[in-house]
């Protein structure tokens, strides 16, 4: 494949050898890509001085099919997000978002997924403390839906019978969503969600961002999402950045 240019944002960056960096980029056209930015720590000509975590811009990639590590030929930084480092809650939430995006394995043309991530980071950059959890959890639920494994909320995840609107429901991660009363008896691990939680999930998956009433509600949604992702991610590794955010240890 020839040299391509695509919108991209930096999900993870770490130093490689004396002068280079390896980056994980979310791109609009080519999913999540690992790239080598040769000389990025030394030269500012090709990559600018702000090729940092959560920076956004236009990446020039030398994409070779089958390679795990592609070559970054240039990166025009258009937006950086220093606001994410001005609050530990925002910083850890952005890291958790980035970790989940990398683990959700987006390999192809995914413009909607790219915009979900971009807008979530924009929102987090200036988010008040009580908006950090709904913004992050909401973006991840929307992303989960966009990638095709949104939880069933309107009908039973097991028998597909319509569920009564405006009511709470048992929720099974293994089954993939809410259950009717009959199927719930055969799913002993199901967690009972109150009506407000079901509505919040529906709103988030649809791309809307309702707020949450209390800290307890926020913690419950963080836990629910972690359990759901843990059930559906391809590998069994834990989510360490998510755990740091959820436990709020650095705030």
């Amino acid at each position: 494949m020839p040299l391509v240019a695509t919108d991209a944002l930096v999900l993870h960056a770490f130093d490689y050898l004396e002068t280079s960096r390896i980056l994980r980029l979310a791109t609009r056209e080519f999913g999540v890509q690992s790239v080598l930015a040769r000389g990025a720590r030394r030269s500012s000509q090709r990559f600018g001085t702000a090729l940092d975590l959560f920076a956004e811009g236009v990446a020039q990639l030398d994409l070779r099919p089958g390679r795990e590590l592609q070559t970054l030929s240039g990166f025009e930084v258009l937006r950086v997000r220093p606001g994410l480092a001005s609050d530990m809650g925002r910083f850890t939430a952005a890291a958790a978002l980035s970790e989940c995006v990398q683990r959700l394995v987006i390999e192809e043309h995914a413009p909607v997924a790219f915009d979900i991530i971009r807008l979530a980071l924009d929102g987090l950059t200036e988010a008040a403390a009580d908006r950090v959890v709904p913004l992050t959890v909401g973006a991840l639920w929307e992303l989960v839906g966009e990638l095709g494994f949104a939880p069933a909320l309107e009908s039973c995840a097991s028998c597909h019978e319509a569920l009564p609107a405006g009511e709470g429901a048992p929720f099974s991660h293994a089954a993939g969503g809410a259950l009717c009363a009959r199927c719930a008896t055969r799913a002993p691990g199901a967690r009972r969600l109150p009506a407000a939680a079901v509505v919040a999930l529906q709103e988030w998956v649809a791309g809307r961002r309702p707020g949450l009433v209390s800290d307890a509600e926020a913690r419950a949604h963080q836990r629910l999402l972690r359990e759901f992702l843990g059930e559906h991610l391809l590998d069994a590794r834990g989510l360490q950045a998510y755990a740091t955010w959820e436990q709020g240890r650095w705030s």
């Binding site: 940092d52 975590l53 220093p82 994410l84 480092a85 001005s86 910083f91």
Partner: peptide, 14 residues
Amino acid sequence: PSLEGEATALYIQR
């Protein structure tokens, strides 16, 4: 002066 460096500085300052 990276994002992680700034967050580390903020944490230590607190």
